[in-house]
Design a protein around this nucleic acid. Structure first.
Length: 244
DNA sequence: AAGGATGTTGCCTG
DNA sequence: TCAGGCAACATCCT
């Protein structure tokens, strides 16, 4: 569920319901946040920023983060209790096991859309600048930095590093700038590939290294937990160059 | 069939 | 004091 493209799918599904301008007429769920705050308020917009899904009202927004296991149902219910259920005149949105939080004021003030890898406003040059300020960081950690690549998750990290031939333990400072630029371009491209494959239910079969034992050139892959983030990393020691 | 994972927060410990 | 460890969240996949 949680990487950026999955949130874009959710946003698109909800946008199809044409709920903008409609009033929340009932709320339920086991969330601890003050959910009734949204009662009788009209939704201004549904937005996404990386892994955040936002339901925007006049002076505040609800931020939904699905973490690792969160799910949702649109006009359907699961057996398990919803964390939050929002009712509209002709639709019901149900969110399960997610983290909820209010964001005060204008979302455009709170969120920098240029760091969302899937946004129209995505700014690759800004990403490169931010990366250069962390010159000693490992690339496997920086790709997961939501301030730089919001929406990029662990699967995308593994796949993108293989595609551009960079070893996950490479140090930023040592990677040629042309390679970094290629990586940034590919991170966005792969996110859209992910989106389309996920929609077509063929995402997994396109994985070149994630959860695999051999790379496409039949080299044995290494699986380890690298970087400060210690996230599961699959890489090919032959195809991916270590810059350090 | 047990155990780990697409993620983040926040508490606990040394 | 603070970095690191680890549980929590619930479901699906291997």
């Amino acid at each position: 569920m949680p990487e950026g493209p999955s949130i874009v799918i959710l946003r698109e599904l909800i946008e199809e319901l044409d709920l903008e301008g409609q009033e929340v007429i009932a709320l339920s769920g086991n969330t601890k946040i003050e959910k009734d705050r949204m009662l009788h308020h009209k939704v201004k917009a549904f937005k996404s920023w990386g892994k955040h899904f936002l339901i925007c009202f006049e002076n505040f927004s609800l931020r939904i983060h699905f973490m690792m296991f969160g799910t949702y149902r649109i006009n359907e219910r699961k057996q398990t209790p919803a964390r939050l259920s929002l009712s509209f005149e002709n639709a019901e949105l149900n969110f399960y096991t997610c983290s909820l939080k209010y964001v005060e004021g204008d979302v455009n003030v709170n969120y920098d859309w240029s760091s969302d890898i899937m946004a129209e406003q995505w700014d690759p040059k800004k990403a490169l600048k931010k990366m250069k300020t962390k010159s000693q960081a490992l690339i496997c950690d920086l790709l997961l930095d939501q301030e730089i690549f919001s929406g990029l998750g662990n699967i995308i990290k593994n796949e993108v590093l293989y595609r551009v031939g960079i070893h996950p333990s490479s140090v930023i400072d040592s990677i040629p700038v042309a390679k970094l630029k290629l990586l940034i371009t590919e991170a966005r491209q792969y996110s859209f590939d992910f989106l389309n494959w996920k929609k077509a239910h063929v995402l997994k079969k396109h994985w070149l290294v994630n959860t695999r034992q051999f790379c496409p050139l039949k080299h044995p892959l290494i699986k380890s937990y690298l970087g400060k983030t210690k996230r599961r990393t699959f890489f090919c020691p032959v195809c991916q160059i270590l810059y350090h």
